[in-house]
Design a binder for these strands. Structure first.
Lengths: 367, 367
DNA sequence: CTGTTAGCGCTTTCAG
DNA sequence: CTGAAAGCGCTAACAG
């Protein structure tokens, strides 16, 4: 029923090996032969058996792209961009040729799923894996990840981080594109301070994420530099890294609802805040809604700022002050790195600049 | 270097066949033996060779999810939901067991890429394929799709449509979950008409998409029912299906920018429109921006409505009147269908209801 | 440039 | 319930 390479070989009156060679295009074949083979392929409507080919070649054309939440455009944009550099499209040949199959895997932010997907990808002998977005910092998970990635790497899988800092052990195996979350966070808060804000609330992401920590650290650097750090330096009572007793920081997931609720909580704890910085734009939207529902105006009564500069942020009313991350460019570059089309940055790690976007949602506090 | 099933068998003092059986859990194995095997697997840190297994079994554990634009939450939400029903997660076993690898493929809305991805998935002997969102209606592409899907289907790949109408030939091979775009579009425009609007502009999606056509048809049904259809019934001069001479309809891609520009164009053509219906929420955001940049207020000077009810729509100011599509639920159901966990709807096709969400961006026209 | 020959690592009858 | 053996369809040396 199903056409095999041998069938094609028979019809083209060549050996299977030759068919394989023209299909893979990695070996000299006479033009006339190649043409005959190609015709046979078309006539028979032959489709290569991927598993067989991967088994024999000990490598597949799968490239995995791991994301924390594919419903979030932050990841959608990066993943889509990476796929443009990897996927079947570019070659325009119509017939699927030497393309890789770029696939996006949604971990939902769960460390277990991240590991599971990695195992699944390892099982498929993936050609490369791109890990996007913030990592979970629990030591156990980091160790497990390092071990798994090492295994993948020496099975020949290329590893690329995109928008994620390299692992502590700094495997040379990995090319990393890290966003300057700390610098962006710092500049954002500096902006608020320069506007005259002194009590600034912060709606942070989940405490165990690198992204959360870095952005928050930047925020605190700015506060400290301005002598505004009014919380205990050594952290507070809650457990885990980054925990602290600061009444002006509330943690929660990276979603709108969390932004809404955390903001309400913040306003309850400190009704005198004049500005709120959100972990990202989505959270900021929730924060805006909460602020409004409390009968306050943005930015007259309270300023709100986000992070990422997602497409909808400019359309918020007022437009959201935020920090732009070049998500598309970073994703595309990660895709190229995964394909080996581009050389890794010196030292294996590149820091991607974050640009402050000042818009209407922030202004000087009243009086 | 790499551990094989034979190694595990040796260590567990059983035959390779037995190891295979415990791993696949589809055959009776003595509890003690199974345990011994499992321990050997752990000791050796064995990972199944996917290609080899797929080759032997003539089927893989890959499930493809095709989307038009993964940067758009419309697709991100559906795809993510589908993955929750398919991916490695649910079983919680830690070790990757019987899971499928659900992968998202971003076609960018290009028919060629759609076909290419299908070929790639066919090559991988995918267990199932989920196609999401609107289809391109060109007859050539439809024919190519039908042929390709037929081939996939009889290679044992399960096919599921999600948010896409079944193909004209209505293959019984396919389970389809279609959104009621026409009904939703109709109710939305009826709402506007009931508010008193008579000149309603429409920023439509790309003309060749099913989604675009259905939503627009619903809009026209409503206009016609109210006797407001002021354009030539038979269509106008532009080429292609769905083209018409209606000055109040402008087509463009499903993105914010298109919404912005098309709205400007609309306002130029017909400065007297009192309401604008957008192809979807993203487009609506662009439309809102354009309206504001023209110095008009929403909804006092002009009403704006969207479609989809994406998460950010409720946060627009004023909140967007739109049509809610149960994207998550539909995606999850599609995932279940793809896994064979749920029976296909009677007749192979289910229509998913669309719910009108009336919010602040629409109001009665002035005077 | 092209054919021959071995496997790649697993699943699956078929016996026991 | 378990083992033995025969491929699955392709690639990759090696010879020509």
């Amino acid at each position: 029923m199903t056409v095999t390479l041998a069938d094609v070989a028979a019809r083209a009156r060549v050996s299977p090996a030759t068919v394989s060679r023209v299909l893979n295009g990695n070996y000299p074949v006479a033009a006339s032969t190649r043409e005959r083979v190609l015709r046979a392929v078309d006539d028979l409507d032959y489709v290569l058996n991927g598993p067989a080919s991967s088994l024999a070649a000990a490598t597949s054309d799968l490239v995995g792209i791991l994301v924390n939440d594919i419903a979030d455009p932050f990841f959608g944009i990066m993943a889509g961009a990476a796929q443009t550099q990897i996927g079947g499209p570019g070659d325009g040949s119509g017939r699927a040729g030497g393309e890789k199959l770029a696939v996006i895997c949604n971990t939902g932010g769960s460390p277990e799923r991240e590991l599971t997907y990695l195992t699944l990808l390892q099982r498929q002998r993936a050609a490369a894996v791109v890990l996007t977005g913030g990592a979970v910092e629990s030591p156990a998970h980091q160790a497990a990840m390092a071990a798994k990635l090492a295994k993948l790497a020496d099975a020949g899988t290329r590893i690329v981080f995109c928008g994620r800092p390299p692992l502590p052990e700094g495997d040379a195996l990995v090319a990393a594109l890290a966003f300057d979350n700390r610098g962006g966070g710092r500049r954002l808060t500096e902006h608020l301070i320069s506007l005259g804000h002194r009590r600034i609330g912060y709606v942070a992401g989940p405490p165990e994420r690198t992204t959360t920590r870095h952005r928050l650290e930047g925020h605190r650097e700015a506060l400290r530099a301005a002598g505004l750090e009014d919380f205990p330096a050594g952290g507070g009572t809650a457990g885990g890294p980054g925990a602290d007793g600061d009444r002006l920081v509330v943690h929660g997931p990276y979603d709108r609802r969390s932004g809404y609720e955390a903001t309400l909580e913040l306003l309850r704890r400190a009704p005198d805040v004049t500005a709120i910085v959100a972990a990202n734009d989505t959270v900021a939207l929730g924060a805006c809604a909460a602020v409004r529902d409390q009968g306050m105006r943005i930015p007259q009564d309270i300023s709100v700022a986000g992070f990422d500069d997602l497409p909808f942020s400019v359309d918020a009313v007022p437009a959201l002050t935020t920090v732009r991350l070049p998500l598309f460019e970073a994703g595309a570059r990660a895709g190229r790195l995964a394909m080996g089309k581009e050389n890794p940055p010196p030292g294996g790690i590149a820091t991607i600049a974050a640009e402050l976007m000042i818009r209407g949602s922030t202004a000087a506090p009243r009086s």
